[in-house]
Design a protein around this nucleic acid. Structure first.
Length: 103
DNA sequence: CAAGGGGCTGTCA
DNA sequence: TTGACAGCCCCTT
């Protein structure tokens, strides 16, 4: 079935990420069928409303780290949420290979 | 109507 | 191994 917009596709994929796991922008964009939309994924999540229920904090870059500058407010927030789900951080990042969402 | 930016990625040296 | 550059598409001003 067809969605109203590409961003809705992204929302559904992000919402499908299980707790305790994380996914990369490229992975999400690839699952959506557009491997080159990785950048649009981040930009779209950025524009999400403050009351969104999407687990945007489970989305990280391909380096297994947060896209925000370390020590930044959103950086700590995302880190805290991931840790609450069982993600173990090491320095500025974590073991992406162990926590990355496996389909 | 037109131009620029954005929570990125992959390849080359 | 790490550092740097260009390209992808949609949304906002």
């Amino acid at each position: 079935m067809q969605t109203s917009s590409l961003k809705e596709e992204i929302w559904q994929i992000v919402a499908a990420i299980p707790a305790g796991s994380v996914a990369t922008y490229g992975q999400i964009s690839h699952l959506a069928g557009y491997p080159t939309y990785a950048r649009y994924v981040g930009t779209t999540l950025k524009k999400l409303p403050h009351d969104t229920r999407l687990p945007w904090h489970r989305v990280v870059n391909s380096k297994g780290q947060l896209s925000f500058p370390a020590k930044s407010q959103p950086w700590h927030q995302q880190k805290s949420r991931l840790e609450a789900e069982g993600i173990v951080f090491i320095g500025n990042g974590f073991s992406l290979k162990k926590f990355q969402w496996q389909t």
